[in-house]
């Protein structure tokens, strides 16, 4: 039986990488005494898969993983038992049961939205310009950035990956493509916006926070990954 677990990753946990976070949950599930299912063989591993890895330094309140259990407890009990094992920075928010043959969260992910906030060493004036410039950037037909990989550099048009981009109070809001089809990192959009406005980009000057991870429903609308299943009573 597969359940989907929604959790947050905040505070110091932003310095814990994706693989370490997976290992953290594997141990937490054991400590919580939950009846997790294992693969077969000499080195059995827990049947667990994560939705959309978060870059180091990014916080989130919309993270997901799927896990298989041999026996279940109620959603509330899942949440309570897991949270009793969490260290500061991770909180389990929801647990749902997926129907049989449900697709896993990783393959479902279609988009994520984010808040970007200025932190330190960044002039207020420049931040205001950035907020005001967001709309103009979105009017462009093409938004070209230089994407660097270990081996090569290439120019890429990221416009198709930006669904929404606007000032939300003093924060910059963005809804971006995520998942296997096309994945756009919020840092790249911030960098592109800075470039567009001729503001020097400094990664350490922004805090990125993921709000939610979405999938597409049958009508093609973006909905929460929790829509795949139901609460366990």
């Amino acid at each position: 039986m597969t359940v989907r677990i929604k959790y947050t990753k905040t505070g110091n946990f932003k310095f814990i990488g994706h693989l370490d976070l997976m290992r953290y949950f594997q141990k937490a599930v054991k400590r919580a005494g939950l009846d997790i299912a294992y693969s077969k063989g000499y080195s059995p591993h827990q049947m667990m898969s994560f939705a959309a890895p978060l870059a180091l330094g990014v916080t989130s309140e919309g993270e997901y993983f799927d896990a298989q259990f041999n026996t279940l407890v109620s959603s509330d009990e899942f949440v309570r038992r897991l949270n009793a094992q969490m260290t500061e920075g991770v909180e389990v928010r929801d647990v749902i049961l997926l129907p049989e043959k449900a697709k896993n969260s990783m393959s479902l992910v279609a988009a994520s939205d984010y808040h970007v906030t200025p932190v330190q060493g960044f002039l207020e004036e420049e931040w205001d310009r950035l907020l005001r410039g967001a709309g103009k950037l979105l009017e462009q037909e093409q938004i070209e950035i230089l994407r660097k990989t270990k081996k090569s550099e290439k120019v890429e048009d990221i416009r198709k990956g930006i669904y929404k981009l606007y000032a939300d109070g003093n924060q910059l809001y963005m809804l971006l493509a995520a998942g296997s089809e096309y994945n756009l990192k919020p840092e790249l959009v911030t960098e592109a916006l800075c470039g567009f406005l001729s503001i020097p980009y400094n990664r350490a000057a922004y805090q990125v926070h993921r709000l939610e991870t979405y999938m597409k429903n049958e009508e093609g609308a973006l909905v929460s990954l929790l829509e795949s299943g139901t609460k366990i009573q």
Binding site: F15, Y24, R31, T87, Q120, A204
Partner: peptide, 25 residues
């Protein structure tokens, strides 16, 4: 307990920042 001796900026510059933040299980 979220007090930190190192700023975000420093932690993002160094290899394996989790070495310095404590708060383990």
């Amino acid at each position: 307990m979220t007090k930190r001796a190192l700023s975000d900026e420093i932690l993002m510059q160094v290899e394996k920042p989790a070495r310095y933040i404590g708060n383990e299980v």
